[in-house]
Amino acid sequence: MKHLWSAAVLAVLASGAAAEITVDNCGEPLTFDATPERIVVHDMNMTDMAFALGLQDKIVGLTGITGWYKTSADFDDLRGDIPELAPKYPTVENLLAADPQMFFAGWYYGMQPGGDVTPDTLAPFGIKTMVLTESCVHLDKNRPEASMDLLFDDVMRLGKVMDVEVKAEALVSGWKEELAAIEAKTADLTKPRVFLLDGPADAPFTAGKFAIPDAMIAAAGGENVTHGMDTSWGRTSWEAVAAANPEFLVLLDYQTGNGAADTFKFLQEHPVMSQTDAVKNEAWIGLRYEELTPGPANIDAIAKMAAAMHPVLN
């Protein structure tokens, strides 16, 4: 009996000695006994984070890339020969076949509440899920409003889990400097009212206070007219948007047809939106999906937005 006890104590001590890594995951702890050697990453924005940290040799598969977007040549170069397990949302079978230890995805970024692939359905197969922080709000309504920490924290979490923390810190502090420089330039300028639009629709799909574009618009020295919406991405009405009279538009460019220019044309022909300052002055910018979802591309996108919405800076 005594032996058993001391063996148990030793076992506990030994497991404590092994480098156990814990990060926050939508308010719950996510713990790894060792650095994952095999990971699968979903979507362009999260893949960009992993590439920025140089994790290519640990990535055994990507999901949700070619089903929706055209990739850039840079992205393809960084990707090399990493296979895509599923062009849109993966099935458990797709993931299990690649035998990963971790899946980096988010709610409506590769996973649907109650769907086939969720942290709960992957756990029995030994696959831990790192959930994109921006998407936590889909299950937990008490999240803080969006800030650029959504990007910084996720890169730091990924860096910590994958044992490249120093690199992550360097990236994040570089980004913070860039944003501070933008803030210094725009601090004394009046903040234009900015409206973000996903594309032509009968009711506009836009970013509320929990989606990262809300924080990006603020970082670029603007004010999101739909900041009052208690949602991540969600629908509002043309009346509400037109009443706010936006002065600048951020249009999502899906790289189909003429991209964001088609969306702008739609607004020019819209009976109410055509009367807003932004449409009359043709003050808009088109940004790609990975620039408007949490990822390294956010930083350049903020710089582009700041330059476009404050012409005096140029």
Partner: peptide, 9 residues
Amino acid sequence: AGDSRAAHS
């Protein structure tokens, strides 16, 4: 009224 993405689920 709530999360319009729930339509997917």
